[in-house]
Design a binder for these strands. Structure first.
Lengths: 119, 119
DNA sequence: AGGGTAGATTGACGTTCGTCGATACAGGAG
DNA sequence: CTCCTGTATCGACGAACGTCAATCTACCCT
């Protein structure tokens, strides 16, 4: 194909029977918004993180301390800490130190934002 | 730590004031389900794929032909085809050949499944 | 102060991912 | 049948990811 800028193929132009390429145009979100959302979904794109998040979410308001996450995850403590950091950087959870232990809690708004993106 | 099987820290054991480690236990989904979901989210964990999916979804029932996706994505045609394959393998879209062109359509059920996982 | 424990950080390793150029496979046009 | 165009696949490369052992920091308890 030669002249392909915004439109492309036969659609009211050169195609008689088959109309290729509907005027999609209406992108739901621009590139920066896509990158933002992709970052959130990337945090969910790992079984271990998904499992950790479910454990944290199931704990409700009080949260969960890391010592209860290492066992069920089946990974080493540094690996769990690494994944928790990713979840925290993605804004899906927040961490709080209570004495010796670190407690993690979900951020419902952030999760809802990702869910609404799949509308 | 020495004896750490299911429980872990001081909670009715050695901790006087602070009760660490609630009985999380109730994992929302097991490991295989987590892997399943993670695969779906991994398909969404890329700005290009997210953009492509929005374009396909915006087209509605008739779908979109690939020739209208290459331009807006800003990537080469092989790269777009690669991402479309990933979306298709993840069950998020289906492809159909109509003559020369290939048309892509979203699979609403699959997307709804991922959305409901973020409840 | 000293010891012990929970959690985070660092460094390294193999694997997977995103990207493109080149090429192969379709299907319509002449 | 032979060109031409749209799409998919292949091969390769650099970057990012998941994992762990080792180490470091923060905090409580005695």
């Amino acid at each position: 194909m030669a002249p392909r800028t915004s439109r492309s193929a036969p659609a009211g132009a050169s195609a008689p029977g088959v109309a290729c390429c509907a005027p999609v145009g209406s992108a739901a979100f621009d590139e920066s918004a896509a990158a933002e959302l992709a970052g959130g979904f990337q945090a969910l794109a790992d079984p271990v993180r998904l499992h950790l998040l479910s454990l944290i979410a199931a704990a409700g308001a009080p949260g969960v301390c890391v010592c209860d996450l290492v066992g069920p995850s089946g990974r080493s403590q540094p690996t769990v800490s690494h994944h928790l950091r990713i979840l925290r950087d993605a804004g899906l959870v927040i961490s709080e130190r209570r004495g010796t232990w670190a407690w993690y809690t979900v951020v419902p708004d952030r999760i809802a934002a990702l869910r609404s993106a799949l509308a």
